[in-house]
Design a binder for these strands. Structure first.
Length: 278
DNA sequence: GCCAACGTTGGC
DNA sequence: GCCAACGTTGGC
């Protein structure tokens, strides 16, 4: 028997054969190199092998995927991360051959042909999100202190709101492949098709205060860091007054307006060229 | 088998 | 560039 995951909220009571939903982060930068796989690229090629997953937790999810399961296509590592498209897993896990190619940026000498360490699935483009769903919006909804939807998002229902709150985007942000609950999938679809929010009104939550630095003056070992973090989190608890305050929507009228279409097009804004080119 | 260290990754 | 989460690795 196999655990579908470890002790997290996902897989408690669901039937093992139920459809899973996933989220794929299309990073633009890998090991310092620009990869540039945008939603435009994805739409153009339609089906793409999801190469280059080199994170164990992400790989484990990859191996769990089945053909036909739905996925969110997410732009990460960019100015305005968020969900840009809907997709489908079209081929289940098979060895990621780029790990065997020593000239490839995804090369990993520890992966052997007879014992592959990394896997990929094929992902097929289904549709573009009618409205790009930015992480900031999801965070805004997740941050609301109430279980009920914020004004303007009543259609999500309490179920949708709590599903968004539980998304791994917030607790496991660095994971580039994530599991998505059916309720969260539905909520994202609703957001994407409804649109109409005023992004400039959503205040980005400020950086959390870092109290640890002062208490750990010397260069701490990694373990010490971990411990410090953990205890800090425990001490901090959830829902301080400051946090509540952050949840208030503020009008921000002077937000830079420069980026519009390219926000969601994802291709890097054309770097101003020095005219030249002979 | 425990547990510290490592490696990966992305938001800020 | 820092921080964070966590599966895996490796020393013992």
């Amino acid at each position: 028997m196999r655990h579908c995951c470890t002790s997290r909220h996902h897989c408690t009571a669901e039937t093992p054969s139920s459809t899973n939903y996933w989220l794929f982060k299309a990073s633009r930068i890998v090991k310092g190199k620009e990869i540039k796989f945008s939603v435009d690229d994805f739409e153009a090629v339609t089906t793409t092998p999801w190469k280059g997953v080199r994170h164990y937790a992400a790989r484990n999810l990859i191996k769990e995927m089945k053909a036909g399961e739905k996925a969110l296509f997410y732009h990460s590592n960019c100015k305005d991360p968020g969900i840009a498209a809907f997709a489908e897993v079209s081929k289940e896990a098979y060895p990621d051959h780029t790990a065997w190619d020593c000239s490839h940026p995804y090369y990993d000498p520890k992966s052997k042909q007879n014992d592959p360490k990394w896997f990929m699935v094929d992902l097929t483009f289904e549709s573009r999100a009618q409205n790009f769903v930015p992480l900031t919006l999801l965070r805004f909804i997740a941050d609301s202190s109430s279980v009920s939807p914020p004004t303007g998002f009543e259609y999500l229902g309490d179920v949708g709101v709590s599903a968004i709150k539980e998304m791994d985007l917030f607790t496991r942000g660095c994971l580039n492949v994530q599991r998505v609950s059916e309720a969260a999938w539905t909520a994202v679809q609703q957001l994407a098709s409804t649109g109409g929010w005023d992004l400039s009104a959503k205040k980005r939550s400020p950086r959390k205060p870092t109290a640890a630095k002062t208490s750990v003056p010397e260069r701490p070992t990694r373990a010490a860091k971990t411990k410090a973090r953990t205890s800090m989190q425990q001490a901090k608890g959830r829902g301080s007054e400051e946090e509540l305050e952050e949840k208030v929507i503020r009008r921000v009228t002077s937000l830079p307006q420069k980026r519009k279409a390219e926000d969601y097009g994802e291709l890097p804004p054309p770097r101003r060229r020095a005219r030249a080119s002979v």
